[in-house]
Design a protein around this nucleic acid. Sequence first.
DNA 1: CAATCCGAGTAATCGGTGCTTACATTCACA
DNA 2: TGTGAATGTAAGCACCGATTACTCGGATTG
Lengths: 229, 229
Amino acid sequence: MRHSAKPSVAKSSAAKPRRRASRAATPKRYHHGDLRRVLIEAALQLVGEGGAEAVSVREAARRAGVSPGAPFRHFPSRDALIQAVAEEAQRGFRAEIEAALRGAPVGDPLGRFRCLGLAYLRWAMRNPTHFEIISSRRLFDHDRAAAISKDNAELIALTEQTLAEASAAGQLRSADLKQVQIAGRALVYGFARMNIDGHFPRWGVAGPEAERTAEAVLDLFIEGIAKRP
Amino acid sequence: MRHSAKPSVAKSSAAKPRRRASRAATPKRYHHGDLRRVLIEAALQLVGEGGAEAVSVREAARRAGVSPGAPFRHFPSRDALIQAVAEEAQRGFRAEIEAALRGAPVGDPLGRFRCLGLAYLRWAMRNPTHFEIISSRRLFDHDRAAAISKDNAELIALTEQTLAEASAAGQLRSADLKQVQIAGRALVYGFARMNIDGHFPRWGVAGPEAERTAEAVLDLFIEGIAKRP
DNA sequence: CAATCCGAGTAATCGGTGCTTACATTCACA
DNA sequence: TGTGAATGTAAGCACCGATTACTCGGATTG
């Protein structure tokens, strides 16, 4: 926020300095001990409260009980802080995808493709702020975040490969795999963003219902691309 | 932007006051004449340059050649300015949709549905900043923008009705029209947002190619929901 | 034509923001 | 036990949105 649209989030849970677990307890130290970690958590909290643009370095510092300049010892800029949050989120996302893939059917590529889509949607619905922060290019410089770009490229390659296997197994109707892949991505991305952007209330999709709708929509798409007798 | 990430857009095309067309020309007047209009245009320009969050009242005023406080005579807040921009964008969007619908086949509901999707995608691809500003709920209060909400509801009802006609004509495979509608919306919305959010470069979709890809992806979806022999 | 009303501009100011610099404190290792 | 590096604070810059008191000048009147 710029300033006065958020007039006073302030002064609530500030001033609770932590220290290394291996040290004796003294309630107030000059050195924080784990400020970087706490700042990331505070930023994540701020994302959840008002969107990624609402992350303010000062407010994060305030919540960490530290002076406004302190965060810049750990992050060269606000963007770098947000990028760190994004890397955190990306790790969680990747873990979810890989877990889902481990539980996917082995001899059924299209079924694996469905699992991928389902994991994508489920994670996005349950962690909308995390999803938002890794999805929009404007929030930070994706080119600098090598880990995130690499992760994304690998996941894209993974779906590509899965689709290719499905095609080779004769499970697909269309021959243009690239179009199928982009369409699938647009579908899940669009669904996840509709959730973030607050479209679902006017579509009559309530919160808890959204995850089931997500699955139904994904199945609709997959039936659409599958070869039928 | 918050401040120094955009250090000096300034001082370029400022100080060109306009006046009512029906008046004689005097190059500098105390009263601007059409400040509201010029501010909306400047804001639209700013959206195009740095995203909707980069719209700054001061910069808009600067480009209109007017003092920083002047815009608040026309808009009670920054959000109100952005909302005015959004209403402008929504008018253009609606006009595009209606034009496409006039040129759509009459006896072919699914064909009309395709026309709707195509118009949506084409407008979104050609006016990404306009699309962005009406798509995200966080940028302004949609509930206050009655015109936009009404427009949206009407367009949603239109696609619903078109789908119902297609279903009645036996053109659809699935019986759950609501899911088909949401899936279609997620597809086109996701595609449009992928464009805005800068995803296409890493998908190997270049700029001019995007519009053709959009059409192909839409056709893939429609074939997927259509009843086949 | 002159007086005046009031819409629409200016100038100054406030608090909030990202970020930088100079300084202070503490930790960890020699 | 010192001492340098790491990490905090304090102060201040430029910018932002928003408010207030003022001032200008176009249009409406008598």
